[in-house]
Design a protein around this nucleic acid. Structure first.
Lengths: 116, 116
DNA sequence: ACCACTAAATAGTAACACTGAATAGCGGTC
DNA sequence: GACCGCTATTCAGTGTTACTATTTAGTGGT
């Protein structure tokens, strides 16, 4: 990860993982692979597991241990009601921030065009 | 600040401040006030000054001390060439992340509509 | 026995925004 | 002339976060 991306993921990675779980339950290794596929190419398992442990402690997800044919048992996480609420809050916070930043960017572009 | 927003600002507040400086030079107290006006209502001076000191150390900005009629001298920051490059990089990182998150959100909405 | 892949956990580190307080300069009021 | 309000900057200490690097564990193949 670039350093900028690393810092930007603070506060968003958690929401992204909750968003993934909102679509359907998943386990850590799977989530890591999906994030890698979606362009976060050098995200490491350890990072994802840390988030999962955190959201489990906060009771935002339910956990079920499911045996795997290919290795040790999987811990399958699914979003619960409290996690759903938290995710809604996340969208609100994100939307606000994204709108402000878009506004700042627009302001720069306007300035450069006509010298403000 | 809400806790979610606090975490989300990590990695973005710096970019936002650079973006403000890209429009025109400004000093810390002024930047704080502007951020407050734009909806980040409980941002505190200390936070902004910490960012300013950081970006000064990294040589992303030029600094000029300007006397004030109303108090101690102002430290007016302006974006330099290196800061401009860094800001460009920030927009790239931000755009990528924002696109991914928008995609995740869309995916949830699609799923909820027709059961995926 | 060894390796490759899957799967989870963990101790230690660096970076960041926040808290709370201190310092400093100016104007006005009582 | 001591005090308050506003402007303006700084700084030590804290909590949270993602990252690094390693360890442990299970299965199947050679």
């Amino acid at each position: 990860m670039g350093k900028q991306m690393t810092e930007m993921l603070k506060g968003t990675l958690e929401g992204m993982i909750l968003a993934i779980l909102a679509v359907r339950p998943a386990y850590g290794y799977e989530i890591t692979a999906r994030l890698r596929d979606e362009g976060f190419s050098d995200i490491v398992e350890g990072t994802v597991y840390a988030v999962l442990i955190r959201i489990e402690k906060r009771d935002l997800v339910d956990v079920e241990k499911v045996p795997s044919e290919k290795g040790p048992p999987r811990k399958v996480y699914s979003l619960n009601a409290q996690g759903g609420e938290y995710l809604e809050e996340f969208w609100g916070t994100w939307s606000f921030l994204a709108a402000r930043i878009a506004q700042l960017k627009q302001h720069i572009e306007d300035t450069q065009e006509k010298g403000e």
